[in-house]
Design a protein around this nucleic acid. Structure first.
Lengths: 344, 344
DNA sequence: TTGAAAGCGTTACCAG
DNA sequence: CTGGTAACGCTTTCAA
């Protein structure tokens, strides 16, 4: 048997009401009484039953993260872990908890509906948005607060998001390789229906176009970002008549496979071929300026998680408070769509 | 306003009791009534409010995973993601949810106490056990059901665990390298207070000893399993007067750094040096037998997550049901400690 | 086979 | 400043 409000109140010779008020910081309680109550609560290690509290207040103090089963590898992607780490720090500050639901493919509509109907969460974070992601209209219709990590092209409803500037960073990375003299640059990208993959490709193409370098479809691959595919795609590219002299990879995990394929081909890194990866903390000197290349570094993704969580909580706490699109620290971008959204 | 039991019952002209019984599969309800109720529930997309249900039943239908902040890199370790993936599959089958709590270092005692006092979860999974891990006696004292992913040497209380055979796999891997003719084998291990790291080292040492190969402390490193440290440690080992000709790595993530250091040293993989990594799906022919080397492959870790979750749920549902130590599929081991535990 | 009513442990309203 | 009491939405006994 564990302590509850009723017995704690009896123990103190007070009413449940007063004890509850003392513990929840209501002003109208006598300071001496409050002290007494707090001490007793500490002594008995009393914590309000979260389900009872939730029932009474109508708030779950819980945020849901729904993970499609298809993206089994997603959980392994460092971006996932870092984002979630940052978010959970923010939740902890506000005494919220974080709930994960893995969902079979194609089943996410019913999952969100259920989350809403069961009142299991006060809001959700959407990870890995697709192009024209159906979850966004769904959640708007369900009136379940949410924030998207990333953006979804093709959606014209309002929604809040936090993203890195994928287009700009891939454009920069490509320019960097061009500056080094490479003209055949391979792109190992994520799946094309993922929104970020399109933005990254756009950046890559824009850089090539600006220099008048022809694009070669054989150098542009897209698939799940796993070691196996990184390896596979690289092997094929290296067998081309005119293989790439540099490779741009979308994730640290696929880069493992890329490097293995390069090893196996007997090529020497840095001499025969160069590779750079989206998670790298890289910058380079250009016109006397230190220019960062990638924006999805481990720490900025962590930060993105924190910001997304804070946005969601503020949306939940004061629904009137609609976030504005703005730039954060030059690298992170947050926004409310259907406003004047920053490009990239 | 969303549908609840009361209005659903009114809509049907039935009592809440009957509706509840019909929906929860109680036998004493008229089949025609049940049909009618189920259809109405589906039509209104009714789901019982999980907090109200939890209050009434005394069960949270939620499992907690507590993640120490120190292991920030842990969330990035594929082992973490795969284990959690498997576990959440199992939870989904039983309609349980999964809650994550990140906790500042040294604060985990109060976190577990709070989880218990708030009745937020029905049980917890312990990840990354240390040698003589204090969480085990704590949770036993709190009477909060738990299952450990891994084991904790030095604990003599009973507890349930699921583990791979770390010792045997590192012993095998070392033997494999010895069979290839290597005599200077570097070990890049996890932090030594982590229980698994000790077991792995033991396996490595046992293999060397069996062949009479002297051990060299300079070849045995242990640290967090990150790219940075993998790189760092490898660089140092390669600068030795007698550098290793093979390296055994504890994780795919640190292996990234290992490979980079080897590249930078201008060595050619497979000719100058070989590396194998604990996550590799490797096997080799020995005496005409195909012998698997490592046991912590991605898929077996996934499976371990499923098994751990199932053990925990069965412990929660029928506390009398104490799991027995046993071998699963030759590679996974589950158990109840203070029984005759399998070695390794 | 069905229903009324008493919890489950809080919060919040309304009196005093 | 404090207390009584009615929600919150469900399950579960006890009666019918």
């Amino acid at each position: 048997m564990t302590m509850n409000l009723k017995t704690l109140a009896q123990e103190l010779g007070l009413s449940q009401t007063t004890v509850s008020r003392a513990l929840n910081g209501y002003p109208e309680v006598n300071e001496a009484t409050r002290q007494r109550v707090q001490q007793a609560a500490a002594r008995y290690n009393y914590r309000p039953n979260s389900r009872a509290k939730g029932l009474a207040t109508g708030r779950a103090m819980m945020i849901g993260h729904v993970i499609p089963a298809s993206t089994r590898h997603e959980m392994v992607n460092p971006v996932f872990g870092d984002f979630v780490g940052g978010a959970s720090d923010a939740y902890a500050r506000h005494n919220f908890d974080m709930m994960f639901t893995r969902v079979a493919d194609g089943n996410d509509e019913s999952t969100y509906r259920e989350l809403k109907a069961k009142r299991a969460v006060d809001g959700v974070i959407i990870q890995g948005p697709l192009v024209n992601d159906a979850r966004i209209p769904l959640l708007n219709a369900l009136d379940l607060p949410f924030v998207v990590h990333g953006r979804s092209s093709g959606i014209d409803e309002p929604y809040s998001w936090v993203d890195v500037n994928n287009k700009r960073s891939f454009q920069r990375a490509t320019e960097f390789l061009l500056d080094l003299g490479h003209t055949r640059i391979g792109l190992i990208n994520g799946l094309e229906h993922m929104d970020f993959a399109q933005r990254r490709r756009d950046g890559y193409l824009a850089a090539l176009k600006a220099r008048g370098i022809p694009t070669d479809p054989a150098l542009m691959r897209s698939n799940e970002m796993t070691e196996v595919f990184g390896h596979h795609q690289t092997r094929h590219m290296l067998q081309l008549d005119a293989p790439p002299t540099a490779i741009l990879t979308s994730s640290m995990i696929s880069a493992i496979g890329v490097r293995r394929a390069i090893e196996e081909a007997g090529l020497k890194m840095g001499r025969d071929i160069s590779i750079i990866t989206h998670d790298d903390e890289l910058s380079y000197l250009k016109n006397g300026q230190d220019v960062p290349i990638f924006t999805a570094t481990r720490s900025s993704v962590w930060k993105a998680g924190e910001i997304a969580a804070e946005m969601l909580l503020s949306q939940i706490n004061e629904p009137a408070n609609v976030p504005q699109t703005r730039l954060l620290e030059a690298e992170l971008v947050v926004g409310r769509s259907t406003g004047p959204a920053p490009q990239g």
